[in-house]
Design a protein around this nucleic acid. Sequence first.
DNA 1: ACGCAGTACCGTACGCCGTACGCCAGGTAT
DNA 2: ATACCTGGCGTACGGCGTACGGTACTGCGT
Lengths: 243, 243
Amino acid sequence: MPSEQSAGTVARPRPTRRSRAPRGSLSAELIIERALRLLDDKGLDAFSMRALAEDLGVGTMALYTYFRGKDELFRAARDRVLDTYVPPSTEGSWDQQLRAACIAVHDLFTGRPAVLRLLAESTGHDDFLDAATSAMERMLMLLREAGLGREDVTRAYGTLSRFTIGSALREIRVCARPEAVERFRSRLAALPQDRFPNLADLAPEMLACAGDGAGQYAYGLDLILCGIRERARQAAEAPASQA
Amino acid sequence: MPSEQSAGTVARPRPTRRSRAPRGSLSAELIIERALRLLDDKGLDAFSMRALAEDLGVGTMALYTYFRGKDELFRAARDRVLDTYVPPSTEGSWDQQLRAACIAVHDLFTGRPAVLRLLAESTGHDDFLDAATSAMERMLMLLREAGLGREDVTRAYGTLSRFTIGSALREIRVCARPEAVERFRSRLAALPQDRFPNLADLAPEMLACAGDGAGQYAYGLDLILCGIRERARQAAEAPASQA
DNA sequence: ACGCAGTACCGTACGCCGTACGCCAGGTAT
DNA sequence: ATACCTGGCGTACGGCGTACGGTACTGCGT
């Protein structure tokens, strides 16, 4: 910047002129990494392109060299996280493996609250990351191994995925937030016991479960797996009933 | 500002000066109603206080007489929708009743996509609407009727609610959007069959299920109910095993 | 009849946001 | 040396939510 502010004390509006960052200081990788850190630390609501740029020590518009816009950056970040999925061991019976695989997905989601929200708001299926597709393929395989028919495999998979995302969402919104659980507690305590006897009676259990996301997930998962087993048994007994 | 624009034809920037709306033209009820209509028609993303005010033929700030801000308005709108829940009949066995109740909730959610997103993003449990609390109470009662222990009742309820919200979310994002299903289709078709044999093979079923939200929900619900029944049977056989 | 307080509606302005557009500097090829 | 390419960047625009103060109407006490 040659003789830029030398012209007297006539204060420019002080845009806090940054010095130009050197040439190689940015990359898609680096941006995604920082964005994820920011997302995890401050949450989705506090995220902005401006904040991210400042965090990187870079002008806002520099980001647009690497991503067409915020949405594209978000999708890239989401994909990066999904690609960190590592399938658990391939030992044990089909239901043991399926259980482990689902729990791994659930853990991946709850570990990245902001990314989960991104995922929940996306139109879904707009892409097939390699890791995500592999996970899907593997689950379908395990379900076939269980002895389910073609449509049952598909529907059972859908059930698992819906339950998993519903659980993870609840978990990041409630279980992981002590203040939410606390508010729940006071609400429960204030309920008229005559109108809601079961709710009032079960308050201690409700509260304990509200704080135990992982346990809740495992319980529901087992319920569903139990249903799948039963379904497989029916299919084995009456193989002619499917189209 | 006296004599502000009287100086000749110097056009003011044309803020399209509205004539003041008459005194009784607004009410909390009316605002909520219009907000819901707008939300349903244009979606959550397109909603803004300014747009709502314009829709009502009113200045933006008039809304702030009735609601402290956008969040409060949203909560009021959400509550209003939740309060339209009507519990289905109280006839039949506990599982028939539970099934009907869950489906009613699911239908309520999927009928109001924008409200569902509001609900999914809220911290949850920050209030107990009368209708929502009654629904909860009734489900807990039915689960006790099934013969479940205290903790099982709570956890089974949690499973149902998580699955229901997960399903509804998926439904408004995918099943109800033909273009999302279409994109899914082309993605499936493009998959390398050697790496993802099951996925490729099951593509027709996957696609059919993607468009059939209600069927998917009912299937998963039955899986869970089956698990609950099994659990109840275990509890009946070994009543000493619970704390 | 007349003021006057209260209130429902509203205009303006501020500080955020995402991003279109074009500039500019520094490295590379010629 | 020169031209070009490209990655970083400043500015500006239109949108958002909303704090704050103004304004005109209603209804009340006199």
